[in-house]
């Protein structure tokens, strides 16, 4: 097969796998609903219940608490969307469907790429719902359209990164019981970032950890885009590229592990 042919086949595989991922999500409420409802609910609970915390004197985010939390939910839903896709991959291996994919695809990295694209498409739907809810509840956007597009790109890379992370585990363990192993590290990284208040208001050891956590930079950048005051963009870009590169290797290892196990 020529190089162009290989690319075309890989693209065909990736698009087919992505199509299935999106198709199944939209035909099975049990798959789609949690990935929509969880972020929506977190957004309601945090933006609605904790907003008084913006009255603390040193709380200095200019676009208001709803926007402050929307940025978090944006990153959180993208990351969790990847994990939910990881559950689906593990399920495909556990129930044997993955064999069909492994058998049919000449270049198997197309399969992983397909899952990744599927996760991103699904997340965009989630984002549309949460964004609408945020606008209805009076979210203030001080950033330009360009800033919002930059936020979209940032979150899409987070989605891709977390999908590859979860895929690496799913293809190594090949059981849905691996769910918590995919979810916990992402959860811990997310919540060891400044979720409720800006970094300088976070107390104790969490503050120290948050300073080193790449998700802190991502959150601050996301919030900066909404406020129209881009913050730590270069640092976030470096973090994203580094994390993405790492998880590409991780997912590739997972794929090899799955291939070895048959």
């Amino acid at each position: 097969m020529t190089a162009a042919g290989t690319v075309a086949r890989t693209r065909s595989v990736a698009l087919s796998v992505a199509w299935r991922s999106v198709h199944n999500a939209f035909h099975n409420p049990a798959i789609l609903l949690p990935s929509v409802l969880f972020p929506l609910f977190f957004f309601m609970a945090f933006a609605g219940g904790l907003s008084s915390v913006q009255n603390v004197p040193e709380f200095d985010y200019r676009s208001g608490y709803t926007s402050f939390q929307f940025a978090f939910i944006c990153i959180q839903s993208a990351a969790f969307g990847g994990v939910f896709t990881g559950f689906a991959i593990a399920g495909d291996f556990e129930f044997g469907f993955a064999r069909r994919l492994l058998l049919a695809a000449p270049n198997r990295s197309g399969i992983v790429a397909g899952y990744m694209i599927g996760a991103m498409v699904r997340w965009m739907f989630v984002l549309a719902v949460v964004f609408s809810a945020a606008l209805i509840s009076g979210m203030r956007i001080d950033g330009s359209l360009g800033h919002l597009l930059a936020l979209l790109v940032l979150a899409l890379v987070v989605s891709a990164t977390s999908t590859l992370w979860a895929a690496g585990i799913a293809m190594r363990l090949r059981t849905m019981q691996a769910g918590p192993v995919m979810q916990m590290p992402i959860f811990i990284l997310l919540f060891l970032a400044p979720v409720y208040v800006p970094l300088h208001l976070v107390a104790g050891w969490v503050h120290d950890v948050a300073q080193l956590n790449p998700f802190t930079a991502l959150l601050e950048t996301a919030r900066g885009f909404i406020a129209g005051e881009p913050t730590k963009v270069a640092l976030s870009a470096v973090c994203l590229v580094a994390m993405f590169t790492l998880v590409v290797g991780w997912a590739r290892g997972g794929l090899h592990s799955a291939e070895r196990a048959g």
């Binding site: 040193e58 709380f59 976070v202 107390a203």
Partner: peptide, 8 residues
């Protein structure tokens, strides 16, 4: 996490 995040 919450104890640190919401102590403010």
């Amino acid at each position: 996490v919450n104890a640190a995040g919401l102590d403010a």
